[in-house]
Design a binder for these strands. Structure first.
Lengths: 148, 148
DNA sequence: CGAATGTCTATAGAAATAGTAGAGTTACAC
DNA sequence: GTGTAACTCTACTATTTCTATAGACATTCG
């Protein structure tokens, strides 16, 4: 299970991706639109900002914007920032590798081998799907309606 | 990340799968061999027993045995018992479905759609891999040695 | 009988999760 | 240049989950 926080983060990003590229969106607006506790969302967006995913403008007329195009922001990237390692075992993590002190020899670990496959499969999806992909269905539905 | 408990459970099962089919293995032996805290392992095995994965014999010469053949026990099945749902979102869980109260309409949920793919990929691996598969490399190595 | 083994329930410390609170900083509008 | 609306940052807290540990109990074998 991913955390609630990660879900909030992803949803907040879809809102930013949906907004005009140079129109900052206020935290309150995102919170209201996605039913996210505002104060909690503040922390999340700040975190995403520190990791170079979004930028903010302070003061009146302030708000948040995507720092890079939505089609370059992957789900995997965001999950790593918010929830930490993607891998199901510490000894399979790319970003936070840690030896399992209870297994002797990773090559021999019967469990590790199986979860390596899980990790691969998961990463394949998470890093090939972007925020733009997430909002795409909505847009194509819109296009369909307009063309009708 | 899977829990330590699940890792212990899977490792304990590989020990049972490795043992003779009618020779109960004592908790202490499993614990020692896999460096699992004994009292913790007791709980885990009991849990697996209650879920019909293993059986036990009490008293002297007691211990645990697999209830069904190792090639019929999947990783997914064990993870569900020990760690709960496989799905990354409650609204994607097969065994513990729960509506997300903050998203309106699952068909529209942009996040859900992506994680459905993750869940599929994960399940594909976890339910097609068994305890027998996990110990297989070891056995084939053994075969290789014997044939050399 | 008695010792070895599993059974069961309770407890507890540590960490993670999901927020909440509030004082501080910045920038635009006037 | 002041006020106010926004983001910033740190700290705090309640709840749950994880990782065990403890100990009394039940069962079986010799």
């Amino acid at each position: 299970m991913i955390t609630q926080k990660a879900k909030y983060a992803l949803r907040a990003l879809t809102v930013l991706a949906d907004a005009d590229a140079d129109e900052p969106v206020m935290i309150s607006d995102i919170a209201a639109q996605q039913k996210i506790p505002k104060k909690f969302l503040e922390q999340i967006l700040l975190d995403l900002k520190h990791h170079g995913v979004v930028v903010s403008r302070r003061g009146k007329q302030g708000g948040y914007l995507l720092l890079k195009p939505a089609h370059t922001i992957t789900f995997g990237e965001i999950l790593r920032i918010i929830d930490g390692p993607i891998a199901p075992l510490p000894c399979l993590s790319i970003t936070a590798y840690r030896r399992c002190d209870d297994c002797d020899g990773e090559q021999n670990c019967q469990i590790r081998h199986v979860f390596a496959k899980v990790a691969d499969a998961t990463r394949k999806v998470l890093f090939s799907t972007t925020i733009a992909d997430a909002i795409a269905p909505k847009h194509s539905a819109e296009v369909t309606r307009l063309l009708a």
